[in-house]
Design a protein around this nucleic acid. Structure first.
Length: 507
RNA sequence: GGCGGCGUACCCAAGCGGCCUAAGGGGACGGUUUGCAAAACCGUUAUCCGUCGGUUCGAAUCCGACCGCCGCCUCCA
């Protein structure tokens, strides 16, 4: 059985089959770059990163497009157009493009840390104004849009299936709608394709309707069409964008092209912090940089320590992408411990491989251990079954843990089974493939020691103290030995005595 | 008011009609190992899945009611 994905459009898990054999086009709604990326971005892009990675693992060629919104999203749909980037630009007294550039770089930096593969194309909205204008023109020509006083609106009454994706109908939405009445619109549900620029609006362009800027749903339609064609296999985004954003995308794209816009709609669920929606006003808004930073002055007050970016990734993968996830210091800390366990295992596995000299064919008893072989085989199948079932990363991850336990058992307590280099390499291959290439929580290389410059400077001293302590241990002077361990421990350095040497790590 | 989701051990979380006397992680406790630790390994930690009814030979899984929580309906990942 192949990959099956939940499709919001049909509310069912369906067999996944791309339009073109062996090739998948994916468009994911990217960030609006007016601030540092937060936990919500983390969940979103890790989720879709795993989708892309798994599709590639299955042998598909994937065209992954994720936009960068550097203009156009206003604070509301009705009018009162305040561009969030413009707002931030005013606050920081910088050019809007400088703001967009700065936070775009910051975003990529954080996504790299989370081990998310870069999209194949990261199109900027401002780089596609002509395409957007063209799309608006098409919609006007086909009678789906109308111009009023320099602004252009999509006529929802011309598109009966509006609301299908989100399970709403235009009438129901009237009652509790918080959208202000806009005099220009023929119907309150009509949405802006192009807005006339008020004199003070910083970002604006020439158009057939005068100076203005694009409406907030338009860029995704224009750019996905340009890079992936009129019908795309998968469109992903946050569940909060189901309505109105994705609904509007469908309407304008299909009205313009006359063909289905998206075959599979995927929506991930939201993030809460300590059980509450994450929001700037609630003081529980946590950026990824605040979690990753070693510098205590940047730390968020709800966090007790810094966490490894890949531990955050692991926490995200521990639950399903369609489930909400609650971040708390306790959850982060538990994920960090679990992440450390896997990392420790992989590190000691690789150390062990290095210690067995020679090429495989020269190593005596180089055959793969039968038990190891069957376990890897079995668990690979389970892993694929889990991932095929709408990306059940929680189970996939549990299989990595299972193999970690088997690995430790095999290395440390081989019993009658001989530890062979081939077996160890086979296990490492499993980790690199499933834990690394697919889940992205196992690195191909781990730094020898800590990256932090502060620690690096003291490495010699640390090694010296360890040497001193081992001399004491050899002389059975355990009082001194324990005292030295205590001193290192008090600055967060934890020692591990191995049969032949002592290693250290930061606790 | 409309739409959607969730409630599983001390915490996180998978399971969505029989393989469940319920994965996996964290924590706690006990053991092996260790000079002692750390790491690792082994074991224990839910006869039960918010509550009450129903459907079924059989339900955590389906249906109904109720209680509690959350999200969307305004930009948001």
């Amino acid at each position: 059985m192949g990959l099956r994905l939940y499709n919001t459009l049909t509310r069912k898990v369906e067999d996944f089959k791309p339009l073109e054999e062996g090739r998948v086009g994916i468009y994911v709604c990217g960030p609006t770059v007016y601030g540092h990326a937060h936990l919500g971005h983390g969940k979103s892009y890790v989720s879709f990163d795993v989708l892309v990675r798994y599709l590639r693992y299955l042998g598909y060629t994937v065209d992954y497009v994720q936009n960068i919104t550097d203009v156009g999203h206003l604070t509301d749909d009705a009018d009162a157009g305040e561009d969030k980037i413009g707002k931030q630009a005013a606050r920081e007294r910088k050019h809007p493009m400088a703001i967009a550039e700065y936070y775009t770089r910051s975003y990529f930096e954080d996504m790299d840390a989370l081990n998310c593969l870069r999209p194949d194309i990261s199109p900027r909205a401002t780089g596609h104004i002509p395409e957007q204008i063209e799309l608006v023109q098409t919609l006007i020509e086909k009678g789906y849009a109308y111009e009023v006083n320099g602004s252009v609106y999509f006529d929802v009454s011309k598109w009966p299936s509006y609301g299908r994706l989100s399970g709403r109908n235009v009438e129901d939405m009237q009652a509790g709608a918080r959208v202000d009445i806009n005099e220009e619109k023929r119907h309150p549900a009509d949405f802006a394709l192009w807005k006339k620029a008020e004199p003070g609006h910083i970002m604006q362009w020439n158009s057939p309707w005068g100076r203005g800027y694009p409406g907030w749903h338009l860029e995704c339609s224009a750019m996905s069409m340009k890079y992936l064609g009129r019908t795309i296999d998968i469109h992903g985004g946050g569940i909060e964008n189901q309505f109105p954003h994705h609904e509007c995308e469908i309407a304008q794209s299909e009205a313009a092209n006359g063909v289905p816009f998206v075959r599979t709609w995927m929506h991930h669920n939201m993030v809460t912090v300590d059980g509450q929606k994450m929001g700037k006003s609630l003081n529980n808004f946590i950026t990824l940089k605040q979690i990753f930073s070693t510098h205590t002055e940047h730390k968020h007050e709800r966090l007790s320590r810094k966490y490894d970016p890949l531990a955050v990734r692991q926490l995200i993968l521990q639950s399903h992408y369609r489930s909400p996830i609650d971040f708390s210091d306790a959850a982060l800390s538990a994920a960090q411990s679990g992440y450390d366990k896997i990392t420790n295992t992989v590190k000691s596995l690789r150390k062990k491989i290095e210690k067995i000299p020679g090429k495989i064919e020269e190593t005596p008893g180089s055959e793969i251990n039968e038990y190891v072989k069957s376990q890897l085989q079995q668990n690979r199948e389970k892993f694929e079954t889990a991932m095929n079932d709408d990306l059940n990363t929680s189970i996939a991850l549990s299989i990595i843990f299972k193999i970690a336990t088997i690995t430790n058992e095999y290395i440390n307590y081989p019993g009658p089974d001989k530890v062979t280099k081939s077996s160890l390499l086979e296990i490492d291959k499993f980790f690199r493939n499933l834990g690394g290439n697919v889940l992205g929580i196992i690195k191909d290389e781990y730094d020898q020691q800590v990256e932090s410059d502060d620690i690096k400077r003291y490495e010699l001293a640390i090694d010296g103290i360890i040497e001193w302590r081992n001399e004491a241990r050899r002389n059975k002077n355990f009082v001194i030995a324990d005292k030295l361990r205590g001193i290192l421990g008090s600055v967060g350095i934890i020692l591990e005595d191995k049969p032949d040497h002592t290693s250290w790590r930061l606790g």
